Simulated assay, not measured.
Amino acid sequence: MSKDNWDIIRAKYVASAVRADQYPQPALIEAAFIGRSNVGKSSLINSLCRRNGLARVSSTPGKTQTINFYELEAKRVVEGEDERASFYLVDLPGYGFAKTNHNNKDQWSGFISKYLSGSENLGVVCQLIDIRHKPMDSDMECFNWLRSCGLKVQVVLTKSDKLSKNAAMSQKALFKREMGLKEHEIITYSSSQHTMRGELIERIMNALSANGVEQE
């Protein structure tokens, strides 16, 4: 990775929350991650931060039941000078087929929607979708709802290593068409191979910079 590109150099868990009064302080600009249960969100977060075990990976769909905040520090070198920026990566519970009772699902959707529609610090939402499938109704509903809230959405197609290069390109084109996305609004990612890691970090940092990420 070029020195003038952003990289994640530090990451730590700071808080779990289901209410606004549990959100960590001080407030920082935020990049949230959301996706269907079992889409590979924890694996992607660990890949992005280069920290195995930072986000707990589970074979049980719907394991994440709280909003989890991680404090990340990013760094780049511009004209020989270090630039650093801190922000929260916010891991949201998965939507879809989480194994829980109906009341819990209502509660989850309640505090998730309150966070997404009410956070003053949210700079970008990365919506993770399994590249091997067509866009599902729940994916489209989530995407359209995020857009209706005026949020900037970066679609991340996960598990790209499970397909051939040509098949992955075809699927990406399908999602672009179905969701009405521009090229810079969608990216493929393989957590096991870390492909497109640098590009995704750049896109996140560009979105956060546009929304006032504090640089040191």
Rank of each mutant, 00 (worst) to 15 (best):
I129N: 08
H133Q: 15
F33E: 02
G96Y: 12
P61H: 12
S47Q: 11
A32P: 02
S117H: 14
I131N: 04
K3M: 10
E141I: 05
R197H: 03
H194V: 00
T66Y: 13
H184P: 09
I45S: 00
R56H: 06
S113V: 04
G96A: 14
L174S: 01
M1W: 07
K152D: 15
R19G: 10
L163G: 04
S59F: 15
I187G: 02
G110L: 02
M196R: 12
L146Q: 01
L28N: 05
G180D: 14
K99E: 14
V124E: 15
Q65A: 06
V124P: 06
G96P: 07
Q65Y: 09
M169W: 03
S192L: 12
D82A: 08
A173G: 07
Y70T: 04
Y115V: 04
N5S: 09
P26I: 05
N104Q: 15
Q154A: 04
A85D: 01
K99I: 07
N38A: 12
S86G: 05
A168L: 11
A32F: 02
F97A: 03
E79V: 04
F97R: 07
T66H: 14
D137F: 12
R197C: 01
L116T: 08
Q171W: 06
G180L: 10
V155Y: 12
K152V: 09
K162S: 10
F87G: 01
M196S: 11
S117I: 06
G80K: 00
V77T: 10
Q65G: 04
K134N: 11
K114S: 15
K176G: 02
E216K: 10
Y189R: 03
R177L: 14
L208D: 04
S170F: 08
F87I: 04
R177Y: 14
K114I: 09
D7G: 05
G123A: 02
L181S: 02
G198Q: 12
E141Y: 13
F111N: 07
R203L: 09
L48P: 01
K12Q: 13
Q107N: 09
N5H: 08
A173D: 10
A32I: 01
V213K: 05
E178Q: 08
K114N: 15
A27M: 10
S209M: 11
N38V: 08
T100M: 15
Q127V: 03
C149L: 15
K159G: 01
K114V: 10
N211T: 09
C49W: 03
C126K: 06
R56T: 09
P61K: 14
M1T: 04
W6Q: 00
G118L: 13
F87D: 04
M136F: 10
L54I: 04
N166C: 01
H133W: 12
A11T: 00
Q127Y: 10
P24L: 09
S160Y: 01
L116V: 05
D161W: 02
E71N: 07
E83N: 04
Q215I: 14
P93W: 13
A55Q: 00
N103I: 11
E178N: 06
L128H: 12
Q107T: 12
F33I: 06
S138M: 15
K3C: 03
D130L: 08
Q193M: 14
H184R: 08
L157M: 02
E178R: 11
Y189D: 07
F33R: 03
H133C: 02
